[in-house]
Amino acid sequence: MTAEEAREKIVDAADRLYYAKGYAAVGMDELRRESGVSLRRLYATFPSKDDIVLAVLARKHEQWERGITERVEGEPDPRARLLAIYYYLADWFCADDFRGCAFINAFGELGTTHPAVADAVRTHKASFEGFVARLVDDAGASPALAGQLVILAEGAQTTAAISGDPAVAARARAAAETLVDAALGMPAVSGDAASHR
């Protein structure tokens, strides 16, 4: 097994375990067993648990950016691209293994005692806000809309995780549609968000 293969096995196992059980609940022995990598090699690859958590968050960030970008870019116009964020969330919330936002989970468990983890979470969230800000700019709306849409998306993630109800995404999308149309000076059209897919 090469060093890169060992690293991938560790990150794969850590990603599954942390997301399912939480960051603090998973020890190095369990990670060793799940990854099939010796404890010696595990520590040689990642000297501390924080290093593993950061590697998992880096992977999650890449997956999030790739997934949401693909979903948004498939839409025909700026308004639809803004609303596509919430269709992306709807698909994610319906996944069998949905356990909320890995970044919010990490911050809740480790943010106050692990500064590097807190920084990674803040960087991810700032990146998402920047992404939405660019979409808002493309739509010709006020920059204030970006923060409003981000709050809706973040709140939807937390609410869906706690309630177990994927319909939260549809409610967030309806609220986003109201905000977007107001920002763009468009008349409200009932049922538009529900019919668009």
Rank of each mutant, 00 (worst) to 15 (best):
T2G: 15
A3I: 10
E4F: 09
A6K: 14
A6P: 06
K9A: 13
A14C: 07
Y18T: 04
K21S: 14
V26K: 03
V26L: 02
G27Y: 01
G27H: 02
D29P: 06
E34S: 14
V37E: 03
R40V: 13
T45I: 01
T45W: 08
T45G: 13
S48R: 14
K49F: 03
D50Q: 13
L54K: 02
V56N: 00
A58E: 15
A58M: 03
K60H: 14
H61A: 10
H61Q: 15
E62H: 10
R66E: 14
G67Q: 09
E73A: 15
G74M: 09
E75A: 14
D77I: 07
D77T: 06
L82H: 05
L83S: 00
Y86V: 06
Y86H: 12
Y86R: 09
Y88K: 07
Y88R: 08
D91L: 07
W92M: 08
R99M: 08
R99C: 11
G100Y: 10
N105T: 15
T113R: 12
T113N: 07
T113S: 14
T113D: 13
P115Q: 04
A118Q: 05
H124K: 08
K125P: 06
K125V: 13
A126L: 11
S127K: 11
G130Q: 10
G130L: 11
G130I: 10
F131Q: 05
F131D: 05
R134W: 02
L135R: 01
V136N: 01
G140R: 00
G140H: 01
G140Q: 02
S142W: 02
G147D: 03
Q148R: 11
Q148A: 14
L149E: 04
V150K: 11
L152W: 01
G155Q: 08
A156G: 12
T158K: 12
I162T: 14
I162Q: 06
S163M: 08
D165Y: 04
A170Y: 08
R173G: 14
R173C: 04
A174S: 13
A174D: 12
A176R: 00
A176C: 09
T178F: 12
L184A: 01
G185C: 05
P187V: 09
A193I: 09
